[in-house]
Design a protein around this nucleic acid. Sequence first.
DNA 1: TTGTAAGCGTTATCAC
DNA 2: GTGATAACGCTTACAA
Lengths: 343, 343
Amino acid sequence: MKTRTNKAARLADVARLAKVSTATVSRALTLPHKVKARTLERVHQAAHTLGYVAHGAARALASRRTHTIAAVVPTLDNAIFANTIHALQRTLDAAGYVLLLASHEFDADVEARVTRALIERGVDGLVLLGTTHHPDIYRMIEAHSLPYVLTWAFDESGDQPCVGFDNRAAAMRVTNYLLDLGHVRFAMISGITRHNERARERLAGVHAALAARGLALTAAHIVEKPYTHTGGREGLREVMAGREPPTAVICGNDVLAIGAIAECNVRGLTVPGDVSITGFDDMEIAGVMTPALTTVRFPTTDLGVYAAKHLLLRLEGKTVELRCKLPTELVVRESAAVPRRRG
Amino acid sequence: MKTRTNKAARLADVARLAKVSTATVSRALTLPHKVKARTLERVHQAAHTLGYVAHGAARALASRRTHTIAAVVPTLDNAIFANTIHALQRTLDAAGYVLLLASHEFDADVEARVTRALIERGVDGLVLLGTTHHPDIYRMIEAHSLPYVLTWAFDESGDQPCVGFDNRAAAMRVTNYLLDLGHVRFAMISGITRHNERARERLAGVHAALAARGLALTAAHIVEKPYTHTGGREGLREVMAGREPPTAVICGNDVLAIGAIAECNVRGLTVPGDVSITGFDDMEIAGVMTPALTTVRFPTTDLGVYAAKHLLLRLEGKTVELRCKLPTELVVRESAAVPRRRG
DNA sequence: TTGTAAGCGTTATCAC
DNA sequence: GTGATAACGCTTACAA
C-alpha cells in the first residue's frame, strides 16, 4: 500500500485506510446520517490519524459551494466598522462560514477591483457597506446570481436588500436636539461626501432639520474633512474663523468630534460652555474621555449579526425580509449643551 | 453556437467567442507575454463582453495556488490589531492577494478551529498573531507545508518565522523610565495573561526591571483585567485600595490605561500629579484626549507590511530573514510624571 | 504561438 | 448503505 509521505492526505487516502470508497468518505464527512455508524467511525478514525483536511477548492468545484462570505468595507483603519465586521465574523463562524475581507479606502474603482477578487475566490454571498456602488459590482453580482446585502445604510428608494439605519434621520435628531436647546448658529464638519453616501445623508439631515426651522448653514460653516483627528482640528479652526462663530458644531463622526474638542481645549474654548460639539458613531472611548460629547450610537454589532443572518437564511433558500432598519440612539452624556451669548 | 444564458461565463465560452482554445485564453489571462498581441486583444475583448470572472476554485484546483493569505487574530473588537490587519490587507492587495480573516477571542480551541477552516479554504500562507498556538495548528501547517509568519511578538527562543517586537523590553523601558523619575511604589493592571503571551511578556518585563533595582510588585499590586475601559477602572480601584497606594500604575495596554485615567478623574486624583498612568499600544486617541498618558508606540503598520512581504517573498521562492524585530518607541507626551509625597 | 488532453480532489448520480 | 464514475472549470505539459 503506497503511502504518500510528506504530502497532505486526500480523500482517497482516507478511503484506502478505512477500506471504503471515496464516495463513502465524502458522505461520512458531509452527510453523516447517510452512513452506517460503524463505517462512520472507521472513516473518522482514518481521517484523524492521517490529519486529513478537506481540499476546499476541489470541494467548491464539485459542490459549487464555498461556505465563504465576503465583506467589502471602506476602511479598517479606524474602529468605526470593526464592531460590525467582528459581529459578522462571529455570526458566520458559528454557522460554519468563513469571512473574506477587503477594504477600498473610499475609492470606487478599488472597491470594484477587490470585490472582483473576492467573487473570483468563489464566495457564497457578499456584504457591502453603504448603498452606492460601482456598476461593475452589481454586474458581477448579477452574473453570478450572488446573494448580497448592503449594510450601514438604508436604501430608502431602491429595492436592494439591506440591513441598516437611517443616517439622515440620525442627523436630524441631533440637529433638533441642539435646536431645542436654543442654538441658532450651526456649523458642520462633515466627512468627505464624495463616494460616501453616509456622509452625504448626515449632511442632508442637518440641512433638512435646520430648514424646517427656517435656518440654514452658510457656506463658510460647512467644511469637509477626512475622518481623522487632524481633520477635526482643522475643521474646527475653519468654521470658527468667521466673525459670527457657531455655537453648535456638528461633526460627521466621533473621530472628527474628538479632534474638534481637542482643538477647543487648545484654544481655551470650553465644551459645551462656549461651543457644543456633537458627533456620530459613539466610539466608546470618546465618552470615557470627554463626557461633553453628545453623539449618536449606531447598532454596529447588530448590523453585523443581522447582515450575516440575512445571507445565511437566503443561502438556505428561505425568504427573508428584504430590508431591515435598525434603531439609532441619541447619547447625551453630560447635562445638555447650552449655548451662551457671546460677544 | 449555443449561448449559456443566465449563467456565469466560463473559460470555454470566452475561448469560443475569441475563436481560440481554452489554453490560449488561460495563458492570455495569466501569462499575457506568452500570447501574441492580437490574440491577447481578442481574448480580452471576448472576456469583457461576456463579463468573464475566473472560477477561483477551479483555478486553485488546477494550479494549486489560491493567491489568498489567511490571518488569525485574537479579536477585531478593538482598534489594537486593526492597523496591522489593515496594512496587511493593503500590502497583499497590491500584490494581487486577498486576505482571509478570522478571530478567536483569545480561545485556543477556537483558534485551532478557525485556522482549520481557513486552511481548508486553501490559503497560500498564514499570518498568526502571537507566538504561542495550539499544537494542532502547527500540525496542519506542517502537513500542508504552508508558509506562515508570526507577528506582534518576537520568538526569542524558537526558530519560528516572525515579524514582531519585544514586548518584554518595551515593558522594561516603561518601568525604567518611571524608576528614573523616582517612583518606588508600583502597581500593574495587566491584561489576562492566560493564552496571551504578549500580556505575560509585559508583566515579566515590569517584574524584571523592578527586580534589577531591588524592588518588587506585591500581590495586591498586580491585577489582571480584560482589555476594556471597565477593566481599567476596576483595576485602578483595586490597586489603589490598600494602605500604601502606588504612585505609578502600569497598564497592560492603552484601553486599560484610559479606563484607569477616567477612574482617577472620577476619584479626584490628578494624573500624573497624584499617580502616573502608563500604557502600551499608543492608540492615537488616547494621546489626543489625555496628554498625561505615557505609553509605548508599537510599529503596528509595519508589522502588517513586513508580515505580508515576508510571506510574499517566500511564496516567490526567495529566501527571507527568518525573524525580524522592529523597534518600539516610548511616547512621553506631557512633561514627565513626577511622584509626589503622599500622606 | 497555439492546440490537445490529462489531471487537480471533491461531490453527486447512478447502479448495486 | 455503499461503490463506480462522470462531472466541476481551470492549468499545464506536451505536441504541433
